[in-house]
Nucleic acid binder design. Structure first.
Length: 572
RNA sequence: GCGCCCGUAGCUCAGUGGAUAGAGCGCCUGCCUCCGGAGCAGGAAGUCGGAGGUUCGAAUCCUCCCGGGCGCGCCA
């Protein structure tokens, strides 16, 4: 069961504001309202202040009062309470309250943000859960293609985000090393080794020949032996590909292992269902009655010839994870697996699990385009774009960014030609460049300013709150953007949406670049100004590194200086 | 036929109840004696697929329709 986390105050850069709003909103309306219920958002329009809240509109109806009247009461209350931390509070439109924060407030905010260093934005989970994330699980009968790359990038980033948010995650890869497809691989290898025709339903790809060539005396071996060796070779290649893609797994779980032993794990799982009265014999086959639990139809688990189905393996694997005591199971599946949701949820319930603790996350397709023409993928013909191909074309960082920047439930189009040609102008380079620039600037600031920035990153919030500096507009915007990170991480984790991190990283890089343009950092004049800006730069550097890290994209301290002989010139 | 996902700017896509709907790319106009110009500022460009409904307020929630993608085996 989930365990309570100690409550931390570190995340609350806006806690005083939330508390004040909640207190006075409750006083004005009598409706129960806490700091966590306050919605603070960044107004889209300039002139609407730093933050806006719709608290008055949310509560007015329930209190039977006019929204603007409630808003006025809140404004009066917080203006009094917050004093010089607030430099403006105005009521607008139907009852919005637009707030402008003072320099004092912003310096305190940066103190809280910056002192957290690389942990800023993390640890916000209310309860820690032990989560098993199963992803990729590509069949060991062929190379990983672009769809697997999206699955890998997503599952890995999701795992990182959940961990950063405060959960404990096990990453798992289910190896389908059992059944007819494995025999087909063996038969295909034998055919290639002997120069015979690849059998019906076999694998045609050039990689089969490569495997055959890598097995001494392959032509004289049995299909069974070649199946084992083929799976071994493909799994090794897949693991190498994943490592190269920056994806780590805690466990590769063998389907075959579920069939080993007496009784096997599969036997045991089916026995549990049988004794629970969940299995029924009909037409000499054993059925799991999933339809009564919302599935389209009932499912066969043991065929009339006595052989278990693939679904039976899934059940045994699910049972194994249940026995390992996870609070939650997540499965990242391809678009063609959405039909599994019903049967998997039904099975989870049949085992006595709470269906809310099983999540099937369906990845939509990656449509590969080359110069405006779709690149077809087909395992049968053996023509597909592998993960290795993709990485060769645009690199790991750009691959991961492109695959992660969109929601997992929307089909994305990836134009190889465009990605290749635009590689020097990708958003990912823009974000990485901002990080490198922050690092570079910090090498140029005075020793005194650097010591303030370093003290802040090291946890000393007071290093910056005491600086008597005026906060410029660009500094204000950057501080507020940094303040958003915990909420972004929380939303990204809650919605299983890594792309929100990518969107935020790009925004943060843009706001930082604007700050860099408007505010001279190194050698800035004025008492404490250089130190203040160095501290802001260091906090931004940390936040950029954090967000890139969550996506599995590197955050280089310096990048190749682009010049006339750069990638663009070469590509031409 | 049934089920799941999607439909937002020229293109690729953010935005799941708030104010005048955004970003990247592409296009147009400016800006390099300056901490890294892989940049910056400004501009053109949208009936948020359509029609109803709920709401003080809808791209967002509900219903129906249209269009696209993917599934629907005692295969794996």
């Amino acid at each position: 069961m989930p365990t309570e986390l100690p409550t931390t105050e570190a995340q609350g850069w806006d806690a005083t504001l939330r508390t004040a709003i909640a207190t006075h909103a409750k006083a004005a309306t009598g409706v129960p309202f806490g700091p966590g219920d306050v919605v603070l958002s960044a107004p889209k329009q300039a002139g609407h202040g730093d933050l806006a809240t719709n608290a008055a509109m949310m509560l007015a109806k329930r209190a039977g009062k006019a929204p603007r009247e409630v808003a006025q009461a809140i404004v009066d209350g917080i203006t009094e309470e917050l004093g010089d931390r607030l430099s403006g509070a105005e009521i607008a439109g139907p009852g919005f309250i637009n707030l402008t924060l003072s320099g004092t407030f912003l310096r305190e905010a940066l103190g809280i943000v910056g002192a957290a260093g690389r942990s800023w934005g993390g640890g916000g989970a209310r309860q820690t859960e032990r989560i098993n994330v199963e992803f990729v699980s590509a069949n060991p009968t062929g190379p990983m293609h672009v769809g697997h790359a999206r699955n890998a990038a997503y599952g890995d980033a999701l795992s990182r985000i959940l961990e950063f948010h405060g959960h404990v995650v096990d990453r798992e890869f289910y190896v389908n090393d059992f059944g007819s497809q494995v025999k087909n691989l063996g038969a295909s290898i034998l055919a290639r080794a002997t120069g015979a025709e690849v059998p019906e339903g076999g694998y045609q790809g050039a990689y089969v020949q490569e495997i055959a060539d890598g097995i001494p005396g392959a032509a004289d071996q049995s299909v069974e032996a070649l199946s084992d060796l083929g799976v071994e070779a493909m799994l090794a290649r897949t693991q190498g590909t994943l490592a190269g893609f920056g994806v780590r797994f805690d466990r590769f779980f063998s389907e075959r292992s579920l069939h080993a032993g007496e009784p096997s794990a599969l036997d045991s799982a089916l026995e549990i269902l049988r004794s629970n009265g969940e299995l029924e014999l009909e037409d000499e086959a054993w059925w799991l009655r999933t339809e009564k639990r919302g599935d389209d139809k009932d499912r066969v688990v043991v065929r009339s010839d006595g052989a278990p189905t693939y679904y039976a393996s899934d059940l045994a694997y699910m049972r194994d994870k249940l026995d390992r005591g996870y609070d939650r199971q997540m499965l990242v599946l391809g678009a063609d697996h959405h039909g599994y949701i019903g049967r998997m949820r039904a099975a989870f319930e049949a085992f006595g699990g709470d269906p809310d603790r099983l999540e099937l996350l369906i990845m939509q397709l990656v449509k590969l385009v080359e110069g405006g023409v779709e690149v077809k993928m087909s395992k049968r013909s053996g023509q597909f774009v592998t993960v290795e191909d993709l990485v060769d074309e645009i690199g790991v960082d750009a691959s991961r960014w492109f695959l992660l920047q969109r929601s997992h439930d929307t089909a994305v189009e990836l134009d190889l030609e465009l990605a290749r040609k635009a590689s020097s102008e990708n958003p990912v380079y823009y974000v990485q460049y901002a990080h490198a620039r922050a690092c570079s600037v910090l090498e140029k600031v005075s020793a005194q300013a650097l010591s303030v920035a370093t003290a802040l990153s090291g946890g000393d919030a007071g290093a910056v709150t005491g600086l008597a500096v005026t906060v410029e507009d660009a500094e204000r915007a950057l501080t507020l953007k940094l303040g958003e990170l915990p909420e972004v991480v929380a939303q990204s984790a809650a919605r299983r949406a890594p792309h929100r991190i990518a969107t935020y990283a790009l925004e943060l890089a843009q706001v930082f670049t604007a700050f860099y343009r408007d505010c001279q950092i190194a050698g800035a004049e004025g008492d404490g100004v250089e130190a203040w800006r160095a501290a802001l730069t260091a906090a931004t550097r940390d936040a950029l590194a954090t967000t890139l890290g969550l996506l599995g994209v590197t955050a280089p301290e310096r990048m190749e200086r682009r010049d006339e002989d750069g990638p663009e010139a070469e590509a031409a």
